[in-house]
Simulated assay, not measured.
Amino acid sequence: MSRVHVDEDIRPLSEFRAGVATFVKQIHETRRPMVLTQRGRGVAVLMDVQEYERMQERLELLEEIYKAEEQIANGKGVSHKDAKSQILRRLAE
């Protein structure tokens, strides 16, 4: 996902209401999220569906890595040799 361009991607909610189709097209084409504001404060982020799905996949992967690091730190890790043996055994079944 690309970074927000402050001069293009932060818009008032009232402006968004008046031109929804244009804003959705911009988000789809640029793949950048748009920050919607109300009374000068950020209230929502609008983003392309594919970019949102990619972000969710990345977050899930990071959560799995974090979980694995905790398990290793708590002595629940498995050596490479043991993991390989377990996988090969399961594949043989």
Rank of each mutant, 00 (worst) to 15 (best):
S2R: 15
V4E: 01
V4C: 01
H5L: 15
H5Q: 14
V6D: 11
V6K: 15
D7T: 10
D7K: 15
E8I: 07
D9T: 06
D9M: 00
R11A: 07
R11V: 14
E15S: 13
R17W: 08
A18I: 00
G19V: 01
V20G: 00
A21I: 00
T22Y: 05
F23A: 08
V24L: 15
V24Y: 05
V24C: 04
K25F: 05
Q26D: 11
Q26C: 07
I27C: 09
I27T: 00
H28Y: 09
H28R: 14
E29T: 09
E29D: 15
R32H: 02
P33G: 03
M34D: 06
V35E: 06
G40W: 05
R41V: 05
V43W: 03
V43T: 03
A44T: 00
V45L: 14
L46F: 03
M47I: 04
D48F: 05
D48N: 14
Q50C: 07
E51C: 09
Y52M: 11
R54I: 00
Q56L: 14
E57V: 06
R58L: 12
R58G: 10
R58Q: 10
L59M: 12
E60K: 13
E63K: 15
E70K: 14
Q71N: 11
Q71S: 10
I72G: 05
N74F: 04
N74S: 14
G75E: 02
K76D: 09
K76A: 10
K76L: 13
V78W: 03
V78H: 09
S79I: 00
A83I: 04
K84F: 01
Q86Y: 11
L88G: 00
R89M: 02
L91E: 08
